[in-house]
């Protein structure tokens, strides 16, 4: 009061600010999950409206490929052109000297030589760069499994099926657009997808063991 000397406000020391904010930063880094989930996308059919609809799907025999995964994770592939038997998943991927499943699927979907025991070829128009092409729009791959098939084997088989389609699409992309599938524009990818639609049907499992666990 007595003194009229001008008082200076002291500077706030902000050197610890960096430490505090680093602490917060590390906290968020630790608690957040950056990993995005990835997986094989599928679309389920809508539930049946009544019991009769269950049996209503008619597929010509030549258009159908049945892939059966049994309880020992062995795989049987049946088409009208012939059957194939894989004793384990490695064999299915082509290590045991047998034709791998994905080659079988590609041959089935393409039917390049217009064989009568592979899916029907129908000419369709796919727009400018592709034009009219013979494709097999009615083919169906029916994936069936037992009640005790392991999920691992099931995913491995699904993966092989998807791989076959992806390779076909990549081939078509190179042929018609001169680039790999991943580099195409979304509408071009859409065109290629229409050329080789993924037609995988996941049937309900057959419970061969028939142990009395009623649902």
């Amino acid at each position: 009061m007595a003194k009229k000397k001008k008082r200076k406000t002291p500077n706030l020391n902000s050197s610890s600010m960096a430490d505090v904010s680093f602490l917060l930063l590390t906290f968020f880094l630790m608690t957040s999950s950056m990993d995005t989930d990835s997986g094989l996308a599928r679309r389920l059919p809508p539930p049946p409206q009544n019991e009769e609809q269950l049996q209503k799907m008619d597929v010509q025999r030549r258009n159908l490929m049945v892939v059966l995964v049994n309880y020992q994770n062995q795989v049987m592939v049946r088409t009208q052109a012939g059957d194939e038997w894989y004793n384990n998943i490695a064999e299915l991927q082509g290590t045991g000297g047998k034709v791998p499943l994905k080659e079988k699927v590609k041959e089935f979907v393409l039917n390049a030589n217009n064989r009568p025991d592979l899916p029907e070829l129908i000419e369709e128009d796919f727009g400018p760069p592709i034009g009219k092409v013979l494709v097999t729009p009615d083919h169906v791959i029916s994936l069936q499994n037992d009640a005790t098939t392991s999920y691992k084997a099931y995913i491995a088989v699904q993966n092989e099926l998807v791989k076959a389609y992806n390779e076909l699409r990549d081939q078509a992309a190179k042929k018609y657009f001169g680039r790999s599938y991943n580099e195409l524009l979304p509408e071009q990818q859409e065109q290629i997808n229409k050329l080789y639609p993924q037609r995988i049907s996941e049937a309900e499992p057959k419970d061969y063991v028939q142990q009395g666990g009623g649902k």
Binding site: D37, S38, G39, L40, A156, N159, K163
Partner: peptide, 9 residues
């Protein structure tokens, strides 16, 4: 399980 053809969600 592992798979090679996964897509990001």
């Amino acid at each position: 399980p592992t798979a090679s053809e996964v897509q990001k969600l």
